[in-house]
Design a protein around this nucleic acid. Structure first.
Lengths: 193, 193, 193, 193
DNA sequence: TCCTAAGCGAGACGGTACGTCTTGTCTTCCA
DNA sequence: TGGAAGACAAGACGTACCGTCTCGCTTAGGA
């Protein structure tokens, strides 16, 4: 492929990120993006169907990274209590390195589309995890799909809280909170409802 | 106040709800609303700043109901494990009675604005609860604000899952799943992270 | 009708004329028109289908004027040789009073659409004339429709030539040339082909 | 010259003609032409400045043919009344052999550019004719340039009428109509205006 | 009971963004 | 290494909403 194509897509992604940081996803127009990227209107639409498509395309990278890490982590066996949801630490660390971007993705001024994309991405990871550890295998009183949504909701909430709060907590500490609240719930300890 | 004002606001709310059920919040335009409500454009803007404002105004009702119920529930003391988050059952039952509306509010085709309003509403209730039972009173390794967000995320996730799945589970069963996953986590059982 | 409508249409017509004079019909964009007229894009399209529609609407005025004059002229009978195509003098005089506008309508930098509109307008007048004087009534070796087109072509050509040449000839003189070339041809004098 | 160049120009001309017949000159875009011709965009612009240039280049052929015929016809002297505008018959016959093409060039769905090109081409021929027969040599009350435009307008009108009408008249008959209306006018018979 | 201010519908208006289309230039790649 | 293929910036198109506004008609509620 023409290497100009590569370059055009890159500047568009960079423009989107920088604008999301400045004004929030919903407030961005295609016009803003192409102005920032110094790209013609038709060029934009030649590559993407709209800003939503551009966003999703950008998410694919994060997706690949986390999936790769997860695969590695699941390979070296250990108990769920110790090694479960290992990818979450990577996520918190990545978020720490790109606080601005994550603030745009996951914060108050984000948009439904962005959140949905993030949510879908995390749901995949969590589902893999529960399958790998054979949790919620049909016999439970909690359907696996419910458990998946529960964990995703919890993770998004903690992540959002941590980012929005501008908390001085380290990624490891934030991750610890997430694990402290979620792992026991998943393992069904203290059954008592 | 002129009783026509009352009437106009009502038809606008009804129009919004019925349109949200049919096509989802984001797909609605002010034009749709005023057409459905048989109201002039300027009349709409005389009462509300836009469809977002109209929505929030509508949420106030649900808010009042749940807050009232919560106050009553907290009055008759009991352990958190038994009586905590009692308002959730009311929520699940209300959702069951207005599945269409809740599907519009909380489902895939909702909008960021709607979700945020819902989230804020629930955060209030959860915060009240934790305060009432003196949980996460500073000493904990989990800040109370984080715990609040965790519970809200979990509740929204289970609610959404239940509505979207068109699950045949009863409101009580859905509520049980929510409690089963959240109460132990909050009570910090099985501390082990 | 709302008197704002009247006003909007007027400024649009004025904008079109002034732009046609400056740069020629074909070079004009809708954007130019609405900028010049200080009118919103959607307002323009609420009134007209495009610049072509705006143009034709403007032509209706000239049309009415010439048709009115023709009716009057045909009323006071006389021979075709003396009074035929009396409207042409009015046209030349009108053109003289609005040379800039006519230059835009009929000159080199005009457009096919403008010319066609003008042509259709004149064809009506010429057809009326031939009918009124019972010329080319079927028996002729020249179909009436051909004669009509011939006269229209001749009139447009002389008019264009007179305008483009910036000739110092008076409207009456230009009209005389038109008559000198066309009347005998129509009356079939010197049959000899 | 590279014979590929020759070939490229031919396919471009053919593409233009076929598209003009199908949709009319104005509705054609450069994109349509190069798609039809199976040629790259830059290739097109390497040969022509735009579709207008391509058109004019194509007209040169017709031009050469008519000019050649005219030269021959003027050589064998005779009176203007008998032999004047002899090229017109060739034009009508050529048009008869390529009705589709002429319909595109001269019909309602043509464009200003095409008409202008045609007009300029004919003006040359008519001017030659008037010069050759020493008509309108300054003394007249009708300037020669006016007479030229008059004849061109008349010829175009008759040609257009004949083509558009899909008349069953033969080229010779159409030409007779043209001569019947134009020759006497030019010769100033029946002076009387 | 009148009459006057307000509420209201209707919809014109200036703007802004959309996704599509076309233009003429400029870069890449291949034969 | 010269020319075909096609990526690109620019900007107009016609459509859809927005939030503001002006207009008369209707109607409620105080005089």
């Amino acid at each position: 492929m023409d290497r100009r194509v590569q370059r055009t897509r890159e500047v568009l992604h960079r423009a989107l990120i920088s604008l999301m940081i400045e004004r929030g996803y919903d407030a961005i127009t295609v016009q803003h993006i192409i102005d920032r990227a110094n790209v013609g209107r038709s060029t934009f639409y030649a590559h993407y169907d709209g800003k939503e498509d551009l966003l999703r395309s950008g998410m694919k990278n994060l997706n690949k990274q986390l999936l790769g890490y997860q695969r590695a982590a699941l390979a070296l066996k250990g108990s769920f209590r110790e090694r479960g949801f290992a990818f979450a630490l990577v996520l918190f660390e990545h978020a720490n390195g790109h606080r601005d971007t994550y603030h745009a993705i996951v914060g108050k001024h984000s948009g439904a589309v962005v959140m949905d994309a993030m949510r879908a991405l995390l749901a995949d990871l969590v589902r893999n995890e529960l399958k790998a550890y054979s949790l919620y295998e049909g016999s439970s009183d909690v359907p696996r799909s419910a458990a998946v949504q529960f964990v995703v909701g919890a993770l998004m909430s903690i992540l959002t809280w941590w980012i929005e709060e501008k908390s001085k907590l380290s990624p490891a500490e934030a991750n610890a909170i997430f694990r402290r609240l979620t792992i026991p719930a998943i393992l069904g300890e203290g059954k008592s409802s």
